[in-house]
Design a protein around this nucleic acid. Structure first.
Ligand SMILES: [Mn+2]
Ligand SMILES: [Mn+2]
Ligand SMILES: [Zn+2]
Ligand SMILES: [Zn+2]
Lengths: 155, 155
DNA sequence: CAGAGTTTTAGACAAAGTCTATTTGTCCAC
DNA sequence: GTGGACAAATAGACTTTGTCTAAAACTCTG
């Protein structure tokens, strides 16, 4: 009944990069070919403090909470750069904003439509045993599984 | 190894509504408690001509291609109404726009990052055999599975 | 066919994100 | 260290998608 798996969607092998300790964020960025400017280091510190999902707006607010450090353009440039380098994952679940996920290990999401909460599901808790055939001349680039949930109408 | 399924994500039982034939779109809308205005009927005719994924902008362009019939506000109002009534499904795969899917049967999507093509995958071609436990006090509202793909770099 | 409620509309507005031209910072050679 | 080439950051204009508002146009029922 279950199809043969013609390809795998396990993409993120870069996850080893992310055990940033306070001191060597700069070095780690440099190893990825990213010049560690003040702005990039600050954004990285916020983002990689723990696995979390932040919007560009939230990062802008946090990074500038004690005086101006980075402009909006720099936030977007940096998040785009980090995404291309595999340091963060863009999560598209809300039509209004992109979330930047500091957890790049293979995982999925619950998205609470009532609260806006986005929470991780470890990959092992979701098992796909049958995969569709890829359209001609294409290759896998990633899989997103989003379990949309709602609060119980506790009446 | 596979968990017991504590709940089901099979949500869309409304799919019987959608065999719209040219003539009785109005009646069918009325049965759903939707007053069949000229604008709503035109939008429905476009959307339900076949299973497809259209953005609000595309629908606006098509509906007004031979003279002005509906305003931008009406397009958004109508799509929102149709979504609430279960006539269309909102598909969130692109950070720039929502797609309105006239296919409300249970299915998933390929999203081609290079071309922007969004194509359907019948539910039976993707089999999930293990489900995560729901966060406390929440209920399932829908599942989205998106296989992001890219064109083969045919060198 | 009146009038109450519903729907549509133009255009103002908002939010997220991009772009541009200029300034500032970084890096390396000397 | 200093000059200069290149990279990065910045303010703010701009774009796109979508929402809101208040007035006008419809629809439906009595
Ligand atoms: Mn939006
Ligand atoms: Mn956008
Ligand atoms: Zn996550
Ligand atoms: Zn679809």
């Amino acid at each position: 009944m279950s199809k043969t798996l013609l390809y795998t969607w396990r993409m993120n092998e870069q996850n080893h990069i992310k055990i940033f300790t306070e001191r060597d964020i700069g070095e780690q960025l440099r190893e990825l070919g990213i010049t560690p400017t003040q702005q990039r280091v600050q954004i990285a510190e916020i983002l990689f403090a723990r696995p979390q999902h932040l919007s560009a707006d939230q990062i802008l607010a946090v990074v500038n909470s004690n005086g101006p450090i980075a402009s909006k353009a720099t936030i977007y440039n940096t998040l785009g750069l980090f995404a291309r380098k595999g340091l963060v994952r863009e999560v598209i679940v809300d039509p209004n904003k992109v979330f930047y996920d500091s957890n790049t290990s293979e995982h999925h999401h619950f998205y609470n439509l009532d609260t806006g909460d986005l929470t991780d599901i470890v990959a092992q808790d979701v098992m796909i045993t049958s995969l569709p055939e890829l359209p001609g001349n294409t290759q896998p680039a990633g899989i997103d599984i989003i379990f949309r949930i709602r609060e119980n109408d506790s009446e």
